[in-house]
Amino acid sequence: MSMKPVALILHAAGINRDLDAAFALEAAGAEVRIVHVNQLRADPGILRRGRILAIPGGFSYADALGAGRLFALDIASFFKDEVSRFVDEGKPVIGICNGFQTLVKAGLLPGRRFLPADGDERRFTLSDNRNGRFECRWVTLKAEKSPCIWTQGIEEPVVCPVAHGEGRFLASSQAHLEALMAANLVALRYTLPTGEPAKELWPHNPNGSPFDIAGICNPKGNVLGLMPHPEDNVLTGPAGRSYRGGRQGSGLLLFKNGVRHAIDQGAIYG
């Protein structure tokens, strides 16, 4: 397959890092299409034409009733089956910040295996930062051993900004959290700039997530949700963000992985 894989970027009222995600995926080699929820609602078949799905950051529906909740409701109400099929087919899906919150609240992360069989109550959530504030700052991330296709092979730290007020990954019980860890589904963690564990120390772990969880994936590894914004550090050269220790452009690695996976899949499935 020499054709560029099509990356669909899901847009809803209040989503605001759609252009950033589009820029990063394009830079990584995808052909990008921003799709509004209303368009998808009218024609859920659009999803079948994409090989990557990105749910970007922002304040969908102004974060009313909790970050990502109403965007998750859209997915559940209008195209749950189509999105589930996309995920089950192993196509790369990434939810960044508000997109991560949306995937978790829609029950798509960490995945069905972690949903109770009997009811609709979730076991995981992204809640208010421990210090109760929205904060924008640069953080250092480490890719952990996990099945996540987006972070495979990333040895060097990824440096990029966070900008959120509800990024603390919480479970309804310690056992649920440990099950997640045991399955190696923690794909990204916050570290000190030196690469050592942040040990929940603010500001390196900006939101107080237990085990410094910055991003998690599903057991299959094709769906990644993360709070930080690698899409805002993809440029190198004079136009790129430069400060000492800033690891210019290191966010691009994730998107390259996602695009490469989509290309490989294309080669396998045609």
């Binding site: 929205f134 904060e135 900008a163 914004h229 790129g240």
Partner: peptide, 17 residues
Amino acid sequence: RRYDHEVLGATRLGPFS
């Protein structure tokens, strides 16, 4: 830090150096 100074991915030099 309560203001997002990174969104749009166009920040070459933000409020902090």
